[in-house]
Every structure is written in structure tokens, then in C-alpha cells.
Design a protein around this nucleic acid. Structure first.
Lengths: 230, 230
DNA sequence: AAAATAGTGTCTTTCAGACAGTATTAT
DNA sequence: ATAATACTGTCTGAAAGACACTATTTT
């Protein structure tokens, strides 16, 4: 293997370009990210984000590359994928000057297998040492997803197909780390027309009380409060 | 010149990585961007953003690269520089699969020479044809800067060192494309403590009326309404 | 009866915005 | 006097949030 350093037209070495995906899910009221232990250098053995090189023969852009990376890992398309930002520098990767275009992705835990769910870790107890600058990237991703939960219907993307309003409230409370008045919450969600009744009722576990109505997301579009975003 | 295509560790051709800067200023009430006519291929002769390759021997990250690109063009550091996003794809650059990390920059027109000012063009009358996907990039940049003007003190960065409150109001009105009540505007700005009196008064042109107080920005930090950003 | 869901009504508070009115400083 | 700046006060309406109250559905 010959070590040929590629140069650009101005004579500078070509930087390394990758994509990394911060894949979120909610497990037992804990916001979690998917971490994998790297099986090769650099940073072998350390936990890190899923990611990889651009496949210039098939990826139409970095968004598509991130989508591919996530799908290859979990077997299905993620519910949501948005660009977080690009992190770069000469020292973040020992192989040389590198840049990674990072994406935030979201998947409902009900769509995951048990073994996959086990690979997620709570953002409240992340490993001290992580590959590259992935700790910093996750820090910003968590900030973004928490903030976005406050002015959009992003939390709905983390809910299973059918759910009660109290379960949805718990999702918002977990993400925003604050409690809400159940009656005000109910009215707000219904007024915004974010969910639809399925006609079914919750049953099973608690049989001693009135069963709750089951709802589903009203549409597939992400609702964003005007003025938010950017 | 031998055409050696660089490969990454997985055997894929290395994408091209560049930075591009959308440099804004305000001239006569018009939001303007800096466009240069490209003097070499690809897209030779077409107007485009300022930008270039990463200099892996000196740039500490893409932010530093963007800062360098802007400084080399206008001779001074910009007042504000923030990442807009990364645009990519196999076809946006005829040389191959490419990605550009884009930045929004802001400079007050009072800091520019006349000849530099002449290179800016109003965002309301941009050329039909532009280099690469720079038209699309500018579209998003304008959207971002207009939106950000509504919840931050970014417009202050476009003001000269000393200005009257009415001049500041005009700046906001130009950016947000709406008019404000001058009395309400004055109170809002003063309540937010965004500006300081210089002690001086406007004079010169209009000598028939009461002179206005001259203000300066209160600090150098960008004020951002909580809940905005991200 | 007890417990939880479902739904309505009302009361604040806060905020932005519109606008009246007065004082001041120049020609 | 006139014209523009400077500044205060008040009123409105919208939105968010807290909370009381009632009804319903199950064991």
C-alpha cells in the first residue's frame, strides 16, 4: 500500500471528510444515544458515534450518506434526520486534517429490537472517554434536541404508534426536564391538532381505573412553531 | 500533471472540501452580499461567493478557514461569523464529489473602502446565473440572517460606530422588511440595554431641527433572545 | 367509593404593540 | 412657529400558565 497524500488544486493536502450520526431514542424516560465500540484504528476500542466515509459512487449528498449510515446500523430508516453542523480540525483525527458533517437522527424505541436497544446509552451517564470529539458533538446535539422539543412536535417522533396523552406528556417532561399541568398540556396538544384519536382505549396493566384514549400522530410533517428554527 | 485520485481507507475517492462565505453588509438600506467573478475554472466568469480550499497547514478548523478567506478579501476581520451549513453532492462541482462548509459573515459598510463596497450586490437583484450552487446557499443565508435579526442584536453589527436610534430603526426595518412605531422601538432598544449614549449629538446635514443623540453598541457580545438560536 | 381519565371555565401574568400627549432643542 | 427628537403613560389583545370544577369510566 503506497501512502499517496492527495493534493487539491492549490497544493494542499485533501482533508478527510466523514459523516457522523447522533441517533436518539427514548428508553424508560431517558434520552439515549447510540454508541458503538470502534473495532479498528483510530480510537479502537473506544465508544463513538456511528459514521463513516462518503461513498462517492452512491451518496447524493451528506444527508443521504447519514441516512445510509443509520439504516445500515438499525435496518430501517430513521424518523427524522437533520444537519447539526460540521466539526473539523487538524488534531481531531490522528490520520490528518479532518472534517465531519454531523446529523441528528431520531427513532422510536418501539421500532428497535431488544439487542439494538441495549446499545443505546443515557445522555446523563455517557462514557468519560469517547472516540475523536464525539463527546463534544453529542453535547451540542443534546442541546439542540432539547431546545427543539420546546417549539416543535419533535417529541411525537419518539412516541410509539399509539399512546395516551399522559404518555406523551411524560415524553415532553423527560425531554424538557420540567413538569407540566396535565389539563393545560392536554388542551395545548389538542388545540394544536397534533394527534388524532384512534378510537381504541388503553388496557392491560392498570385495570382498576378508567382506561385512557389512545392517540396517534396527526400527520407526518414536523410541526414547528413559527419563529423557531434557525 | 498526473491525475491521481485520492482514495480513503475504504477505497472511495476523497471528496473535495471547501469553505464559502456569504458576506453581508447594508448599503443604502439594501441588504447586500459580496460576489466576485471567478477568474478560473470551474465556473470561470460567473459571479460567486468568496471561498476556497482548506489550508491544512494553517487552518485550525473550517471556522478559521472562513475567517481567513474573508480577511484576505476585505483586509480586516469580519464582525460576525457563524456556520450556516454544509452543502454537498456529486454534481455541484464538475471536478467531482464535493462539499462546502458555508459561513455567514457580517461587516459594517462604514469599514469598507468605496471600491470594495462596489463589489456588493443587493440580495433583491442577484444575478440569474451563479457559480456552483451559490444561489441556493445565498437563499438560505438571507433567510437565516433575516430570521436572526428578529430575535437578536445582529443588526447592531451592521451599524457604524455611532448612530442615532432612528438610524438603527431603519436598519431593523430594512432587514425585517416591516415598519415599527418609533416610540415603541426606542423603548424596546433602551430597555434591552443594547446601546449606550456617546454624549455626542448628530449634526451636519439637517440643521433645522433638534439634533439626535448618538449611540454606540453597549457591548461586543451578540444578544440573543432566549429560546431563539438552534 | 376510589382512582384515573376527560373536558371546560376562569383567573392571572406577561408581552408586544399601538397610540396619546408632553417636553426639548434646534432654525 | 415649526419640525424633529426624546420620553412617559396608558390601553389593548394575544398567549401562556395555574388551577378549580365537573363528568365519565372502570374495579
Amino acid at each position: 500500500m503506497v501512502d499517496i497524500k492527495a493534493l487539491d488544486d492549490d497544493g494542499f493536502e485533501k482533508p478527510i471528510l466523514t459523516v457522523d450520526v447522533v441517533l436518539f431514542t427514548m428508553i424508560d424516560g431517558h434520552l439515549c444515544v447510540l454508541l458503538v465500540n470502534r473495532d479498528k484504528e483510530p480510537c479502537e476500542g473506544l465508544p463513538g458515534l456511528i459514521g463513516g466515509y462518503i461513498h462517492t459512487n452512491e451518496d447524493l449528498d451528506t444527508h443521504a450518506a447519514a441516512k445510509r449510515v443509520a439504516r445500515n446500523k438499525i435496518g430501517i430508516n430513521v424518523s427524522h434526520l437533520e444537519q447539526l453542523g460540521t466539526f473539523s480540525g487538524p488534531d481531531r483525527d490522528p490520520r490528518g486534517w479532518s472534517a465531519t458533517v454531523t446529523y441528528i437522527a431520531v427513532i422510536k424505541s418501539s421500532a428497535l429490537t431488544n439487542s439494538l436497544r441495549a446499545e443505546f446509552q443515557s445522555v446523563d451517564s455517557l462514557p468519560e472517554e469517547m472516540a475523536f470529539d464525539h463527546g463534544e458533538i453529542i453535547h451540542w446535539a443534546v442541546k439542540r434536541i432539547r431546545n427543539k422539543s420546546s417549539y416543535s412536535s419533535l417529541p411525537l417522533l419518539l412516541m410509539p404508534g399509539k399512546f395516551t396523552l399522559l404518555e406523551l406528556q411524560s415524553m415532553y417532561e423527560s425531554l424538557l426536564e420540567q413538569e407540566f399541568d396535565d389539563r393545560t398540556f392536554r388542551r395545548k396538544i389538542l388545540d394544536l391538532d397534533l394527534v388524532r384519536e384512534t378510537g381504541e382505549m388503553s388496557d392491560g396493566k392498570v385495570t382498576k381505573v378508567r382506561p385512557a384514549k389512545l392517540y396517534r400522530p396527526a400527520g407526518k410533517a414536523l410541526w414547528v412553531k413559527s419563529g423557531g428554527e434557525w
